[in-house]
């Protein structure tokens, strides 16, 4: 057993998993309050990366006299803000008129929104992949053994952990977080108790979209290229992560994201040993999805729901 290689794979898997986890949180929170799959969420992730690119381009003159971490933080926060606004606007325009309609109607609308965002971005920014600027100086840190980690990976992991902690604080300790939990537990009771449903839903979309934007920037930092259709696959994989963890469950989404990131990386890293070609990495998530839905549809940490007859 080559422990150094395994550790290396685990580090790579964790940083990918962190990205999936951040996207998965948006799926799971929206599902929690509205009970539908926001298919366009992967495209918000893509918009986050593009927002990062353009914010960096516009503010470049200002960034010269700033340390790296500060300019990167500004790019990150502004992109998160932009996506939060976009997420809220999408909900108000496309989904809000459909409350009480069948889930399928909402899903079809969400597919429409997804196409609109990706083809709209293609129209505005062009179809060709774009290089993503280096937000922080990238160095390779050698760890004990023959293991190495890039500064970007460190930043991705650290900031993801910070974001998860803040999310936990928001959900557990703030009034808004309490209202979110109330709404996802029992929508009727929540609105009877005076919870402002519309405000909570907007807040949830904003929060989820901001996290997706962060994921988009991290993805772009690690892979250095972005394009209008980059959101489709990570988006769907993150949805699988949310289902794996138990949809509607916030801790579950984070867990599911990390697990899928790890599994995917391990399949690629050990493809020779296990006899699966590395090209099958994109199928990993779908196989997991099918297995989990057939054998434990409530997910690892979720509770099962029963349809009323």
């Amino acid at each position: 057993m080559d422990w150094a290689n395994l550790t290396q794979q685990l580090i790579n898997g964790l940083s990918l998993g962190a990205i999936y986890a951040l996207i998965a949180l948006g799926y799971t929170m929206v599902y929690g309050v509205l009970r539908f799959i926001n298919f366009a969420h992967g495209d918000v992730f893509m918009i986050g990366a593009f927002a990062g690119l353009y914010v960096h381009r516009w503010l470049k003159p200002l960034f010269h006299w700033m340390p790296d971490f500060l300019s990167a933080l500004i790019v990150l926060l502004l992109s998160m803000l932009i996506c939060a606004v976009i997420g809220i606007v999408i909900e108000k325009l496309a989904y809000k008129p459909l409350r009480q309609r069948s889930r399928l109607t909402v899903l079809i609308t969400a597919i429409g929104v997804s196409l609109l965002l990706s083809y709209g971005t293609q129209l505005v920014c062009g179809a060709a992949p774009k290089g993503f600027p280096q937000l922080i100086k990238n160095e390779t840190l050698d760890l004990p053994g023959v293991v190495s980690m890039t500064t970007e990976q460190v930043v991705v992991l650290v900031v993801t952990v910070l974001l998860l902690i803040s999310l936990r604080f928001i959900v557990q300790k703030t009034r808004m977080g309490l209202a979110m939990r109330a709404l996802s537990n029992n929508p009727t009771a929540a609105s009877l108790m005076g919870v402002n449903t519309d405000a909570v839903i907007s807040f949830t979309f904003g929060l989820g979209s901001a996290l997706a934007a962060a994921a988009g920037i991290f993805f772009a930092m690690l892979y250095q290229a972005i394009d209008p259709f980059m959101g489709i696959l990570p988006g769907i994989k993150a949805f699988v992560a949310a289902v794996l963890g138990g949809i509607g469950n916030i801790a579950g989404a984070a867990l599911g994201g990390v697990l899928i990131g790890l599994l995917e990386t391990l399949v690629v890293g050990y493809s020779k040993n296990i006899g699966i070609p590395p090209g099958f990495r994109d199928a990993v998530a779908f196989v997991i999805l099918i297995l989990i839905l057939m054998f434990k549809p409530a997910g690892l940490l979720g509770k099962s729901e029963r349809e009323k007859v």
């Binding site: 799959i37 889930r103 399928l104 909402v106 899903l107 949805f239």
Partner: peptide, 22 residues
């Protein structure tokens, strides 16, 4: 048989993608 609506949509999407990846 065990899935409804939106979940089924994602699973069929997954099957389609698996065929393509294979």
């Amino acid at each position: 048989l065990r899935l409804r609506g939106d979940y089924l949509a994602i699973v069929t999407l997954g099957f389609g993608e698996i065929i393509r990846v294979v």
